[in-house]
Structures are given as structure tokens and as C-alpha cells.
Nucleic acid binder design. Structure first.
Lengths: 246, 246
DNA sequence: CCAAAAGTGTTGCGTGTACACCCATGT
DNA sequence: ACATGGGTGTACACGCAACACTTTTGG
């Protein structure tokens, strides 16, 4: 028993050393995060891009990304990019997928973790921090640098799916919004037309909208009511079972 | 014009070199994949685990994983593990999430990409390749090594959600199965009871089940019909819009 | 008073759910 | 014959989709 224990111990120390040396030696890759940052403006869904600085991709736009430092969590790295590029810190951010094809990057093996972020574009307007940054309508995005087109597409599809089952889309709107704005948002993200009355009924039936007692200002027609979303109520009531449905 | 172009070229070469050196130098981490391999047996959902070989976690079980080699795609690395540990190659495999907390692994910074895999446990029975491998019922999984409990939980939750909107669960059954088996599978994954008649109606209405013209064998009661799933038909008919529903 | 968008209800249809009886097989 | 689970149908409730008119505001 004692012997077995001692043998085990030595064996385990050996195994740990082996793994440590593997970890520290050749089996390493560069790791980056790339953020697909969505905004909503002029009734269009937009994405924030930066002009690529590599010759090979000179005329192309790319996602906002950076290498992950060895002492930095992935989520933290993604937040840093958001903060650095938009000046915003209170944003919706969620990991979507990791892209690790061997030859996806011209500078060597770089595995990248893609994050999807949703920001309120009005807030961002006040702090343009970089002249190489621009908002692009999603329909116009056709030819990004590296494999960023693929990453963008994955995040966009992810958003279209996710927005139907989770109220994350509201992060794209101001805190107070009209039902028209909300509907425009869904129509823009999903690229469909929705019936105004049914949309309204739907959201009121969910019972997560709080009447702010205020109306729109400066519109050339009858002003709409403003609402906010009650996230607390949502968290309590959110469903777990919605039925099998392929 | 020519000057500008030349300047650009030199600037770009410089930038590329800078990035390359960053990629090749300190900013590197070890990368692994971990597979949460689900099986279905005795009407229970099970997970394939291996006895951890590190002292600190001596008595604990862990997920099947390995370091990603510098010239290996992520998906490929996951497939290798499946192949190596189960002998199976034709399995359902999908990336779920990447875990990158700085201190998640005792051997140093290791970022891991979690994959969820579904295998037909009957097939696997024939090829037990490693005596340290065991199937565990999901309810009994409470204390895995490292952060594997968290990874497992993420994959299990992912599966519970995904199985409601995609027929991936059928990968856990034999090619021919009875409706009872299918229902047991869903009840096990979702941990709920379902009405037999409504379940039946639901699946027949989807119209993806093909009657094999055969019945169960060796059951101590009336044998049930056997069906297979028509994946081709599913691929054509699968829905894209199911409505906003939080 | 005109334009433009807000606000409001009803009806039909399809889908989910609850529920009970007869049938086929092995023992 | 009996025990066990297979196989079927109906009725009700609810949610979604289709659809038109009146109201409020600014110009």
C-alpha cells in the first residue's frame, strides 16, 4: 500500500513534468481574439471594421482583433479590444466560435476566438477614437481580409438565430425606444418584414416592456410611446422548455 | 504615386514582420481540445471519461483531450481523439466553446477548445481500447479534474438546447430504432417525461422517419416498429424562421 | 386639411396538450 | 389468460397570421 502510493507519486510527478514540458515547448500557437461589433443606425445593421494594415490585404477591411497575452483571459482580451476601439465598456459580448485552421493567417499559425458584440451606436458616436475605423452596412460586406469574411458570416448567422430566443438585440437600441424602432431592428437583423400589429401584440404579451410614460420627440408625425426592457423580469421568467422542433 | 506605392510597400513589409515576430515570440500559449463524448445506454445518457493521471487530481475523472499540434486543425485534433479513444470515425462532432482562463490548468497556461461528440454506444462496445476509460451516467458526474466539470456542464446544457432544434440526438441511437427508444432518448437528455401519443404524433408529423418494415426482436411484449431518420429530407426541409420567442 | 405613422380587435387556422381504449406478443 | 408495452383519435386551449380603420401629430 505504502509502496503503491510512493510509486504512484513518482509516476504522477513524472507525468506532470512531461505535460509541463510539452506545454512549454514546441506545442504552442499564437492566440488572438476577433470581435464582430454590431451597431444599429439609420435602420440598418452595421459592423465596425478597421482598414487592414498588411500589404497582401491592403485594400481590405478586417475585424477588430488582437493577440491574447499569456496572462490574459480570453473574455478580458475581448473586452480590451472593445474598450480600446470604441471607448465603451458596458457592452454585450459573447464568445461565438474558435477558428483554428492551420493556414488561416499569413503571419503563421494563429488560432482566433471570435466574439460577437452589440453596442449602442449613439453612445459610440461621441468617441471616435481611430480614423481607420468605419461602420459598414452588413449587406455591403463582401470581401474582408484573411478569413474574416467567414468569421463575420458565422457571427451574423449566430446573431440571427440568437436574437429570436434571447433579448440581446435590445443592446443595440437606446435605453428608451419605441416599438417602431424595435421592429425596425428585428427586420434589419433578420432581413424580413413583420406585421406591425402582431409584432406589437407579441411583445406586449411577453410583458417585458416597461412604459416610460414618455413619447418620441421631433418626429414629423404622431410620436410613438417609449419603453425600456425589464431584464430582471426576463431573467426570472425565461423559459427552459420550448418543445422539440426541427 | 510610385513613391507612395513604394512607401506603402515598405511600411507593409515592416508591419508584417512585426506581427510575425509577435506571433513567433512570447505571445504563444498551449492549446488543447477536450471532447465531451455522449452515449446512450440502458436508457441513460452517459459520458465517456478517463482516469486523470495527475497526482493533484489522482482520484478524479477527466474528459478526453490532447494538445493541438502546430500543424493540426482544431477539428482534426478532435477527430483524432475520437478515433484514438473509441476507434470510431463516423461520429457527430461539433465545437461548443473555448475555455481560456489563465489558471485553468496546473501545468501552465493551456487554452482548451471543447467539442461535443455523440456516438452510438453499441458500436463502441466492440472496441474498448483503453482500460482507464469508462462510461458514466450524467447525473453521477459531480467532481471532474481541472475545470472539466464546468466544461462538461457547458456541453450538457448545449446538448439539451441543441437537441430540441436539430436531430443530432439520433446519432446516439442505432440506425434502426423504435419510437420508444427515441422517446427514451429525449427523456434522458432533457430529464423530463413526455406523452407517448403526442411524441409519436410530433415525429410522424415532421415526416423524417422512414418505416423500415421491420419490428423489434426479443422483447417480452408486442414488438415496436423500427424506423430510420431521413437526413437528406431533413436537410432540404429544415426551417429557418421559427418566430421571436424569449 | 393633408401626410405619415401610431394605435387598436377579430377571426380562422394550425399546433400543443391532455386523456382512454384496444391490440399484439411472450410467458 | 395475463402482463406489458404498442398503437391510435378526439376535444380543448392557445398562439400565430391575416387583415382595416381611427387617432394623433407636424407641416
Amino acid at each position: 500500500m505504502a509502496v503503491t502510493s510512493k510509486e504512484n507519486l513518482q509516476k504522477n510527478i513524472k507525468t506532470l513534468k512531461k505535460i509541463q514540458s510539452e506545454v512549454q515547448s514546441i506545442n504552442r500557437v499564437a492566440l488572438s481574439v476577433d470581435c464582430v461589433i454590431f451597431g444599429f443606425d439609420e435602420n440598418k445593421l452595421k459592423v465596425l471594421l478597421i482598414r487592414s494594415d498588411l500589404k497582401k490585404y491592403q485594400s481590405k477591411w478586417s475585424l477588430l482583433g488582437d493577440l491574447v497575452k499569456p496572462d490574459e483571459d480570453l473574455d478580458t482580451a475581448a473586452y480590451h479590444i472593445l474598450k480600446q476601439r470604441t471607448g465603451l465598456h458596458d457592452v454585450y459580448l459573447e464568445q461565438v466560435h474558435t477558428f483554428g485552421e492551420v493556414n488561416r493567417h499569413p503571419a503563421g499559425r494563429v488560432v482566433t476566438v471570435a466574439y460577437c458584440s452589440l453596442i449602442n451606436i449613439q453612445h459610440h458616436r461621441l468617441k471616435i477614437l481611430d480614423h481607420e475605423l468605419h461602420w459598414h452596412a452588413v449587406e455591403s460586406i463582401t470581401d474582408l481580409a484573411f478569413d474574416h469574411q467567414k468569421i463575420f458570416q458565422a457571427c451574423y448567422s449566430w446573431l440571427q438565430k440568437r436574437v429570436q430566443e434571447h433579448p440581446l438585440g435590445l443592446s443595440l437600441l437606446p435605453n428608451k425606444f419605441s416599438l417602431r424602432e424595435l421592429q425596425n431592428l428585428y427586420e434589419a437583423i433578420l432581413n424580413i418584414k413583420l406585421d406591425r400589429r402582431n409584432f406589437r401584440k407579441k411583445f406586449f404579451a411577453m410583458d417585458f416592456l416597461v412604459d416610460m410614460g414618455e413619447d418620441e420627440q421631433n418626429v414629423p408625425h404622431r410620436p410613438g410611446r417609449l419603453y425600456k426592457f425589464d431584464y430582471e423580469k426576463y431573467e426570472k421568467k425565461k423559459k427552459t422548455w420550448s418543445g422539440i422542433d426541427f
